[in-house]
Amino acid sequence: MQPGSQPFETLTGIGLYTPAEAGRLLRIPPARITRWLRGHEAGGRRYERLWTPQADLGEDGLFLGFRDLQEVRVAAAFIARGLSPQRVRRAIDLARCVLRDEHPLSTARFRTDGRSVFLQVAEEDGETRLLDLLRGQFAFREIVERSLSNLDYDEDGIPQRWWPLGRGKAIVLDPARSFGQPIEAETAVPVDVLAAAAEAEGSPEAAARAWDVPVRAVKRALAFRQAMAASAA
């Protein structure tokens, strides 16, 4: 680990992903993720990164934490709705001040209508209002659909677990387990371990016997791997 980088023990519980891993999980080109988190130059102009990643390994390379993974997911959804990265960066800066959270974009309180970004605010009168972060005023309008789905949040709206293919597929990313790598939810065994066992043993049934897990757990891991490979093709 390089001087000035984050101590390895502080990475426990936040997850750890390379841009390539994040790209496969999010179905976003890794180069785009790198640009957003490192900044880049284009047309003689410097564009700063959208936010500072959770994981700082110095010169060992760019890595994302679990919150970064979800921030990228939301940023991509906002940009897909027509917002420029610069407007997303401005919304992040404003929301960081409002929520006092270094990774505000991944909270459950963000919304967009394709033109601006709103922060959901509950008022004392019981009404739900949307604070327009790009105009600095409250907007009275319907809450647009969340950009995030298949997430488990804590009571403060902070994402805790992500089910990338939906809960029914039983594959989950939990930063508190296996450094946030995909695991089979029923057994808590990493997807890569079960998939590799199936390849080594020659069948899901043989892998299940070797690992003393249900055959369905191995098949879920293989299905997830296939889904990720298909999305990357």
Rank of each mutant, 00 (worst) to 15 (best):
M1I: 09
Q2Y: 15
P3W: 14
G4T: 10
Q6P: 11
P7C: 07
P7I: 11
E9F: 15
T10P: 01
T10M: 09
T10I: 09
T12E: 12
T18L: 04
P19M: 06
A20W: 01
A22E: 07
A22W: 07
A22G: 11
G23V: 05
L26V: 05
R27H: 14
A31G: 10
I33M: 10
H40F: 15
A42M: 10
G44R: 11
G44D: 11
R45F: 12
R46D: 07
R49D: 03
W51V: 09
T52G: 04
G58L: 09
G58P: 03
E59V: 05
G61K: 10
L62Y: 03
F66K: 02
R67M: 05
D68K: 04
L69F: 04
E71F: 04
E71Y: 01
V72S: 02
V72W: 09
R73Y: 02
A76E: 11
A76L: 02
A77W: 06
A80L: 04
A80T: 02
G82K: 03
Q86G: 04
R89Q: 12
R89C: 10
R90I: 07
A91F: 04
D93T: 08
L99V: 02
R100S: 09
D101E: 09
H103K: 03
L105Y: 00
S106L: 03
A108S: 06
R109H: 04
R109V: 00
R111Q: 01
T112S: 15
D113V: 01
D113I: 01
D113T: 00
G114C: 02
G114F: 00
Q120C: 00
E123V: 00
R129F: 00
L131C: 00
L131Y: 13
L133W: 00
R135A: 04
Q137A: 06
F138N: 02
F140D: 03
R141E: 02
E142D: 12
V144P: 05
E145W: 00
N150K: 05
D154G: 08
G157N: 08
G157Q: 08
Q160I: 08
R161V: 08
P164T: 06
K169P: 01
A170K: 13
L173D: 03
P175F: 10
R177F: 07
R177P: 02
R177W: 05
G180F: 12
P182N: 11
P182Y: 14
P182W: 15
I183S: 09
T187A: 13
T187F: 14
A188M: 13
V189I: 15
P190F: 15
V191K: 09
D192Y: 10
D192L: 14
V193Y: 15
L194Q: 11
A195C: 13
A196F: 08
A196C: 07
E201R: 15
E201N: 12
S203G: 14
S203W: 13
S203A: 14
S203E: 09
P204M: 12
P204G: 11
P204K: 08
P204F: 10
A208Y: 09
A208T: 08
A217S: 15
R220E: 09
A223R: 12
A223N: 07
A230G: 06
A230W: 03
A232K: 06
A232M: 05
A232G: 13
A232Y: 03
A232V: 03
